[in-house]
C-alpha cells in the first residue's frame, strides 16, 4: 500500500518536473475558477454543523433555538401528519400569484416608460416615490381599502415585487447602446421591429436581474401578511409556534423559506442562461 502511494507520488513529481512552465501558468489565474454547486454549499453546511454542535453541547437552549436535527424530525413529522403541505400550498399560491401580477405589471410599466417620453413622464417619478415607501408601511391603507382577505395580501406583495422588475427592465431599455440605434436606422427598421429585435433583447439581462430579486422578495412580504387574518400559510404556523415557544417549528418555516427562495432563484437563473446563451461573460 505504502509503496503504491510512494510510486504514485514519484510519478506525479516526475510529471510536474517534465512540464514546469505549463504548471506555473495554470496556477496563475486572474479570475477565480467557477465554483460548482457543491462548493457553494460549504459555508451553509459548516454553519449547520456548528449549530448542531452548539445545541447538543447545551450552549443553545431549546426554547431559544432548536437543534437542526430536532427541526428536521419535526418537519418530517409535520409532513407525515399532512400538516405541512396545505400551509405550504396556501403560501405558495399567494406568493406566486402576487409574483405573476407584480412581474407583469413591472414589465408593462417599464416598457411604457422606457420606450416613450410620455410614458416616462407619467410613470417613472411615481415608481421612484413608491420605491421610497417601505411596502409594509402600505399595509394599514391596504387593509382599509381592500379588507383583510386574500386580495389585500396579493396586492401588497405584487406592489413590492413590481419595483425591482420595473427598475432593472427600465434601466436595460434606457441603456441600449446608441450604436445599435444607429444600426437600426441605417437598416431601415420600423419602430415595431426595433422594439422586437433590438430594445427587448437588449433589456432582457436587466429584466432577469429584476426577476431574480422579485422571486425572493415575494416571500418576504408574505411572512408579515400571513400574520393578519390567516388560518393557513407558513407565516401563520410560524406565528402560532412563536406563541407556544416551539422554536423547532419556527426553524422548519425558516428552512422552507430558504429552500423555496433558492429553488426559485435557481429556476430563474436556469431560464436566464437559456435565453441569454449568446452572452459569454466571466462567471456564466
Amino acid at each position: 500500500m505504502t509503496s503504491q502511494l510512494e510510486r504514485d507520488e514519484v510519478r506525479s513529481r516526475q510529471r510536474v518536473g517534465s512540464a514546469p512552465t505549463r504548471s506555473r501558468i495554470s496556477t496563475r489565474r486572474l479570475v477565480p475558477a467557477r465554483l460548482g454547486p457543491v462548493g457553494l454549499l460549504i459555508g451553509p453546511l459548516a454553519l449547520v454543523g456548528l449549530w448542531e454542535l452548539a445545541a447538543t453541547a447545551g450552549w443553545l437552549a431549546p426554547r431559544q433555538l432548536a437543534a437542526p436535527s430536532v427541526a428536521l424530525r419535526t418537519g418530517y413529522q409535520m409532513l407525515l401528519d399532512g400538516e405541512l403541505l396545505p400551509h405550504l400550498a396556501a403560501s405558495a399560491q399567494r406568493a406566486y400569484l402576487a409574483l405573476t401580477f407584480g412581474v407583469l405589471g413591472g414589465t408593462v410599466l417599464a416598457l411604457l416608460s422606457g420606450l416613450s417620453r410620455v410614458g416616462e413622464a407619467a410613470i417613472d417619478g411615481l415608481v421612484q416615490v413608491k420605491r421610497a415607501i417601505p411596502t409594509l408601511a402600505l399595509i394599514p391603507l391596504a387593509i382599509l381599502w381592500l379588507g383583510i382577505g386574500e386580495t389585500m395580501k396579493i396586492v401588497v406583495i405584487a406592489s413590492s415585487v413590481f419595483v425591482p422588475v420595473y427598475i432593472n427592465t427600465h434601466a436595460g431599455l434606457r441603456g441600449i447602446d446608441i450604436r445599435y440605434v444607429e444600426l437600426a436606422r441605417t437598416t431601415g427598421l420600423s419602430r415595431a421591429e426595433f422594439i422586437r429585435r433590438v430594445a427587448l433583447p437588449g433589456a432582457l439581462p436587466g429584466f432577469f436581474t429584476g426577476l431574480r430579486l422579485a422571486v425572493t422578495m415575494c416571500w418576504t412580504a408574505l411572512v408579515v401578511l400571513e400574520q393578519i387574518n390567516a388560518t393557513e400559510g407558513i407565516g401563520y404556523i410560524m406565528t402560532r409556534a412563536r406563541d407556544y415557544g416551539q422554536t423547532d417549528i419556527i426553524v422548519v418555516g425558516l428552512v422552507i423559506y430558504a429552500v423555496l427562495g433558492l429553488l426559485s432563484d435557481g429556476l430563474v437563473r436556469f431560464a436566464e442562461r437559456k435565453s441569454l446563451s449568446w452572452r459569454r461573460t466571466v462567471g456564466s
Binding site: R179, E182, L183, T186, T187, L189, E193, R197, W278
Partner: peptide
C-alpha cells in the same frame, strides 16, 4: 436604398448570424 458598413461590425449579439444579415 443604401447601407452602412461600420468600423465595428455592429452585429446584434443576441441575434444569430442569419438574423443579423436579414435585419431590416
Amino acid at each position: 436604398n443604401r447601407s452602412v458598413l461600420f468600423q465595428d461590425s455592429r452585429l446584434l449579439p443576441w441575434q444569430r448570424v442569419l438574423a443579423n444579415v436579414t435585419l431590416g
